[in-house]
């Protein structure tokens, strides 16, 4: 056998071994485009959990490869950009800040309930898929929780000739965009956040004898059915 043929056989064998080894995928601060929406006239503060600064998810596929995905600060960037486009006045506050001291209509606390992904060897397709389940809690200016909204986002991307890293990264970004689209589309309907401005105005009007509106605003949005598409 000629040298080049042996080299080719060895290279093919080596690449097939590497192909089974899984990968560690890192998201490099993805961004979402500026949404084409009207801002809600609300003053909103957001408090992020520590996991939004460094989120890593690992998955060991039994008998096969190990995959891990490092979202880093992607979630913080996503929600900061998103809420900055959705509300007329928006601030990020530290974990120890008391929202009662701030002139805001609402405090939003996003968190991650679950993160999952599937790779082609699991799904028996060419697709990488990512599911992210976020939870958004909304509090009024006095600190009363008015909404607890779970949202399920999904992204899918096909494996490319050059491996799955880019496809998994793309699927994760698509899932985050999906979450952003869902929040833009349904947040007000699911949480009634826009009513908080009126509630605050009523509360700040001294002679008003009206009962606090927040009593009637308590909502717990229905759990979204999981997206079965793959």
């Amino acid at each position: 056998m000629s040298i080049w043929l042996r080299t080719a056989v060895l290279a093919a064998a080596a690449s097939s071994v590497v192909g089974c080894g899984g990968a560690r995928v890192t998201l490099h601060d993805p961004t979402i485009p500026e949404p084409l929406i009207d801002r809600l006239p609300l003053s909103v503060a957001v408090r992020y959990p520590p996991v939004f600064d460094n989120f890593v998810h690992e998955e060991q596929i039994i008998g096969k490869e190990k995959w891990s995905i490092d979202l880093g600060r992607s979630n913080r960037l996503l929600f900061t950009q998103l809420f900055g486009s959705m509300f007329s006045d928006f601030n990020v506050i530290a974990g120890d800040t008391d929202p009662k001291d701030l002139p805001i209509d609402a405090l939003i606390e996003p968190s991650i309930d679950a993160f999952e992904f599937s790779v082609p060897s699991q799904s028996q397709t060419d697709d990488f898929a990512v599911w992210i389940r976020y939870r958004i809690k909304i509090f009024d200016a006095s600190g009363t929780q008015i909404a607890n909204w779970p949202i399920a986002a999904y992204g899918k991307s096909q494996a490319t000739t050059f491996g799955g890293d880019e496809a998994l990264r793309r699927a994760a970004v698509l899932a985050m965009r999906d979450a952003a689209a869902l929040i833009i589309l349904q947040m007000d309907k699911a949480t009634g956040i826009s009513k908080l401005r009126e509630a605050r105005a009523q509360r700040e009007t001294p002679p008003s004898p009206a009962l606090p509106e927040e009593v009637n605003l308590q909502t717990t949005a229905a759990e979204e059915p999981p997206d079965d598409t793959d």
Partner: peptide, 29 residues
Amino acid sequence: VDALFPWFEPRTAPAETKGLPTLMSRPGV
């Protein structure tokens, strides 16, 4: 898709032409 974000995302894109008038009534679209 980026220019019209979020109205042509997989979740939000109109599935039928019946949805086009609503889409066109959105600000900036």
